[in-house]
Simulated scan of single mutants.
Amino acid sequence: MKYPGEPLNILHTIGLKELYPIIRISFTVKGNFDVNRFKQAIMLTEKVVPELFCKYSLTDNSFIPVTDDLEGVLFIGIDPDIDSERWDLFADPQLRIYLNHNRVTIYLSHILTDGAGGKQFLYLLAKAYNEGVVDNCQNHQDIDWLRKLLAEHPVKVDHRVDHPTQPLSLPKLADDDQQSRRTLAINLTPAEGKELIKAAHHEKVTLNDLFMAAFGQAIQRYSDANSISLACPTDMRQFIPKKGQLRIANHTSRYNISVRSKLSAPFEKLVWSIHQAMQENKDNFQCFQSVKSLIDNYDKYSLSELQQTVEDNYHVRNISYTNFGIIDDHQFHFNGCSIEDFYMLGTYRRYPMFQVAVSTYRNRITFAFAMVGTDQEERFGRAIMMTMVDLLRNYTEKFG
Rank of each mutant, 00 (worst) to 15 (best):
D60N: 15
E340K: 12
N394D: 13
K262W: 02
C287H: 11
T165V: 14
C137W: 11
Q217S: 11
L173G: 07
E131Y: 14
K119H: 07
Q166G: 01
L294H: 07
I25F: 04
L196M: 13
D176F: 06
H140F: 15
T322Y: 02
K148V: 02
N250R: 03
F367W: 13
A185T: 13
L270N: 08
T309V: 15
K119M: 05
I248W: 09
L207I: 11
P164I: 12
L19R: 11
F367M: 14
P241I: 03
Y56L: 00
K300M: 08
H333T: 09
Q276S: 12
T165Q: 15
D69I: 05
I97M: 05
V259M: 11
N100G: 04
P4W: 01
F342A: 03
D69T: 11
F239A: 10
T374I: 07
S359P: 05
P241H: 09
K17R: 09
T234H: 01
E152G: 00
G132L: 10
T360N: 13
Y343W: 10
A370N: 09
M236T: 09
M212A: 12
D34P: 00
A185C: 12
G5E: 03
E71S: 14
R393F: 00
N250Q: 14
H140A: 02
N284D: 12
F267Y: 14
R237Q: 10
G373N: 05
T252A: 15
F38M: 05
L303K: 08
F324A: 05
F334G: 00
E51F: 00
N394H: 14
D375C: 02
I14N: 09
R24T: 04
E397M: 09
C337I: 05
Q286K: 09
Y348K: 00
F288S: 03
A357T: 14
C232S: 15
D235E: 05
T387M: 09
I97Y: 04
K198M: 07
S223W: 01
H12M: 10
L270K: 08
V271D: 10
N318L: 06
I143P: 04
P171S: 08
H140S: 07
G132W: 13
E18P: 00
R103E: 12
Y348S: 01
V104M: 13
R221L: 14
H12Q: 11
M385C: 13
S304I: 12
G15Y: 07
K55L: 08
R393D: 05
A126L: 04
G115H: 05
V291W: 03
R247I: 04
S223R: 06
D81R: 07
